[in-house]
């Protein structure tokens, strides 16, 4: 069985700060990490590899330095790593990103695809389902438990008010949440050998996609502007009888859409 795991290298958003003068993100010195949900996806793939036998390939789209995330995945136990990198891929929204990842999946071959539910820098949760649609395979999102049987999976999907138990035949795509498992640490042996493994690099030509369908030009959505929330202004101080104060509170809560 071939399992693909899509991962993303993201800046640790807890460390991202805003430059108060320019209002832009300060990325210098911010560590890059494997997106947390993606690590749960990788862990689940490795567990299936151990119990059922499988070949686990990690795939990422990004700049050349995303190799570091792939090396980390290899040292957790992945068998192969593929870096999708090309200047033409830059500036992609979720539609254009998922198209590239879907093409890569077709080229590499798969029985099962794992991805994280969402990345902490964008929080969209869209790339997984969009890959599944491009590949015309079933998807299950918010996965919190997986049981692999022959040719099919029994999967628990989290809902706000409980969960559902689902059955799906492979091939399919699952997006994982942190409740699914506890990702392992890199192990010593694999840390040493991960640098001996070759990372396969694929560009736009290898994937047979027209350049106008990827990156910024292939993206239906465009960022019109970005901005930081302005500093908080001094609030109002109200000193009136209790029922009047309560009235003001409720009016304000309506105004800020709390009620």
């Amino acid at each position: 069985m071939n399992i693909l795991v899509f991962i993303k290298q993201v800046p640790d958003t807890n460390e991202v700060k805003i430059d108060p003068k320019t209002g832009t993100l300060i990325r210098e010195g911010v560590p890059s990490i494997i997106n947390p949900d993606d690590k749960n996806a990788l862990e689940e793939a490795l567990k299936i590899k151990e119990s059922k036998g499988a070949r686990v390939t990690v795939v990422t789209m990004g700049p050349p330095q995303a190799e570091k995330a792939l090396r980390e995945a290899l040292s957790m136990g992945a068998d192969e790593a593929v870096l999708l990198t090309d200047r033409a891929f830059a500036g992609a929204d979720t539609w254009a990103t998922s198209l590239v990842l879907a093409k890569a999946a077709e080229k590499i071959g798969y029985d099962l695809i794992f991805a994280g539910r969402q990345a902490i820098d964008g929080d969209t949760a869209q790339v997984g389902p969009e890959i599944a649609e491009h590949l015309n395979i079933p998807q299950i999102t918010y996965v919190e438990k997986v049981e692999a049987l022959d040719g099919k999976l029994i999967v628990r999907r989290a809902l706000e008010d409980g969960y559902e138990v689902l059955s799906v035949n492979m091939p399919c795509l699952l997006t994982c949440i942190k409740e699914l498992n506890q990702p392992r640490y890199m192990n010593m042996y694999d840390i040493f050998t991960c640098y001996e493994k070759e990372i396969k690099v694929m560009n736009i030509k290898d994937l047979d996609i027209e350049s106008e369908r990827v990156g910024l030009s292939g993206s239906p959505t465009k960022v019109k502007k970005s901005f930081t929330k302005g500093p908080k202004s001094q609030g109002e101080i109200i000193d009136v009888p209790a029922h009047e104060a309560a009235n003001i509170v409720c009016e304000k809560l309506k105004f800020v859409h709390i009620i």
Partner: peptide
């Protein structure tokens, strides 16, 4: 919001 709420972006979908 993006980047953990650190930044806001206004997005449009002009041609689709």
């Amino acid at each position: 919001p993006a980047f953990g709420g650190n930044i806001m972006a206004t997005i449009e979908c002009p041609n689709n």
